[in-house]
């Protein structure tokens, strides 16, 4: 979606609906919704050109609260629904809202194939590492050993890291945000909107009811400085107020003190860097390593919808736009006289 100058000036209120928002009090989804409503009016896209498509789960209620075209589909299938919409209506800004269960469990197949094709969708996955809507079963991103209603003795499933999945699926844009890091979240959504091709954004989202505090060490005062590294293209990988940094040796990250090694020794983040680096960066986690937030990978490649529609245009240029008479009179024919 190319970002043009807005025809009408839109505001946050233009994107609010009359529907009463029905997430649990304190749910991280509220903060995410607020950022969407803040960012959308700034993108220069007329309101009717937005479509927000979701699957099933707490996060998937999202379209009801955005005053755009919206579609609350079925469990896991939002990327596929969005794909059909985008192919036929490439001018739209299409957003897929999904969660760790919806996107990575039942809908895993659609998610990876959307990214592989690089269709121009903005896929935002709210990761709360739990099934909220069905009231508290472990999800494909829940940590090994997690005790939940369905795993009273601890889960014996190894979790996915959503960004690893995305990289394996050839995603051209991946980023990580957190519900509590409002400004960064807004910036990432803006960058995702600008990217042509699939933008995959993972948002760490707190579920106070069934998995409270899953990301607190990354998002809360007191612990976040030690555990959160915000990456920026062309800038060194520093965190903890610039005191610490990360150096990559053969894609192995290690934490160093900046004043011991000097700022110039710290690895510079490149969004167009090697896949191995992006993978290692996306997979960093505590306690030894900080967790990376921000745009981790952004590379250019043609989007699927663009290619499909280019083929249509080329054929129309070559053959002229097909009409009914031509259709009926095509193929091998013969005439029976009266």
């Amino acid at each position: 979606m190319s970002v043009a100058t807005p025809l009408v000036k839109l505001s946050r209120n233009d994107f609010k609906t009359e529907q009463e928002v029905r997430w649990c009090p304190g749910c991280g989804d509220y903060a995410i919704l607020a950022q969407f409503q803040k960012v959308f009016p700034t993108l220069g896209i007329p309101r009717e050109q937005f479509a927000v498509i979701s699957g099933i789960g707490c996060s998937s209620r999202f379209p009801y609260y955005m005053n755009t075209y919206g579609f609350h589909t079925i469990h896991g299938r939002a990327p596929a629904v969005a794909t059909g919409l985008k192919i036929m209506n490439p001018e739209l800004s299409v957003w897929v809202i999904t969660g760790d269960g919806d996107g990575l469990s039942i809908g895993g197949n659609h998610l990876i194939h959307a990214m592989r094709r690089n269709i121009d969708l903005n896929i935002v996955l709210f990761n709360n590492q739990i099934y909220g809507l069905t009231k508290g079963q472990y999800s494909p991103t829940s940590e090994f050993g997690k005790r939940t209603k369905s795993t009273p003795y601890g889960s014996v499933d190894t979790p996915f890291m959503p960004l690893s999945v995305a990289l394996g699926a050839e995603a051209s844009f991946i980023a990580r945000a957190a519900d509590r890091e409002q400004k960064l979240l807004g910036d990432i959504l803006t960058e995702a909107a600008k990217h042509k091709g699939t933008s995959f954004v993972e948002i760490y989202q707190n579920c106070p009811i069934f998995n409270d505090g899953a990301f607190f060490n990354i998002t809360e005062k007191g612990t976040k400085d030690d555990n959160q590294l915000v990456v920026e293209h062309g800038k060194p990988l520093v965190f903890n107020k610039g005191k610490q940094g990360v150096i990559f040796d053969c894609y192995n990250p290690r934490v160093v003190n900046v004043d011991e090694v000097g700022l110039e020794a710290i690895t510079i983040h490149r969004e167009d860097g090697p896949l191995g680096y992006h993978l290692a960066l996306a997979r960093m986690h505590g306690p030894e390593l900080p967790t990376a937030l921000g745009v981790i990978r952004r590379v250019e490649r043609p989007s699927y919808d663009e290619l499909v529609n280019a083929q249509v245009e080329t054929e129309i240029d070559k053959k002229g736009r097909g009409d009914l008479r031509e259709l009926l009179q095509s193929g091998h024919r013969w005439t029976v006289e009266g």
Binding site: F71, R77, A80, V81, T83, N109, H110
Partner: peptide
């Protein structure tokens, strides 16, 4: 499933 889901998306459009 994606076959029909995409068609539903296109119909919505």
């Amino acid at each position: 499933i994606a076959g029909i889901a995409s068609a539903i998306g296109a119909a919505f459009g």
